[in-house]
């Protein structure tokens, strides 16, 4: 993958099947984690990655924080889960292909990607603390950073062109 280019009405990147499979697998895991977290508030206490994905809105007021969790936590987890599942879905064809695939995103799609990639990095950062394959996770973490930075660059370019 060489990064995104601006095209009429969106953004394009060429993705290798192996890259697409890795990204789709990570995205599916993230979506599943957020699905579990939406149904089970106690995961915020037992899994630091969930705590970081869905942080409390109040820091020094446990009562307000609990009220916030009651009203907002589930819907937020579901929205974040949908960013991840749309990210995975956009990679489905490229994952199944035998050759590199040109992926086209509109702005909403690029927003799903940039957010899901950020959330994946939050999870990887926590998993690297305790995981076995730290070097492998570090490579993924850095690769995702590059990809997110690249998406920010083209989203900015699109914004400039509109202005």
């Amino acid at each position: 993958m060489r990064g995104f280019v601006l095209v009429d009405g969106g953004f394009e990147a060429v993705v290798e099947p192996e890259e697409a499979r890795i990204l789709a697998s990570l995205a599916a895991q993230l979506s599943a984690l957020l699905g579990e977290a939406a149904d089970d508030e106690s995961l915020s206490g037992s899994d630091p990655a969930v705590a970081r994905l869905l942080p409390d809105a109040y820091r020094d007021d446990e009562e307000a924080a609990a009220e916030w969790r009651r009203l907002s936590r589930r819907a937020l987890a579901e929205r974040k889960g949908s960013f991840a599942s749309r990210f995975a879905a956009a990679l489905a064809d490229a994952s199944a292909a035998s050759e590199s695939t040109r992926i086209r995103l509109d702005e909403a799609g690029a927003l799903d990607w940039v957010r899901a990639i950020g959330d994946l990095r939050l999870v990887l950062a926590e998993r690297m603390e305790v995981g076995d394959d730290r070097e492998g996770m570090r490579d993924l973490y850095d690769w995702l950073a590059w990809m997110q930075d690249d998406l920010v660059r083209v989203l900015d370019l699109a914004e400039e062109r509109r202005a």
């Binding site: 942080p55 809105a57 109040y58 937020l76 957010r115």
Partner: peptide
């Protein structure tokens, strides 16, 4: 401010209100 905090969480930033 609650809406802003929720939006920041959607973007994966760590935000609170006070």
């Amino acid at each position: 401010m609650e809406r802003h905090v929720e939006a920041m969480h959607e973007y994966g930033l760590w935000a609170t209100l006070e």
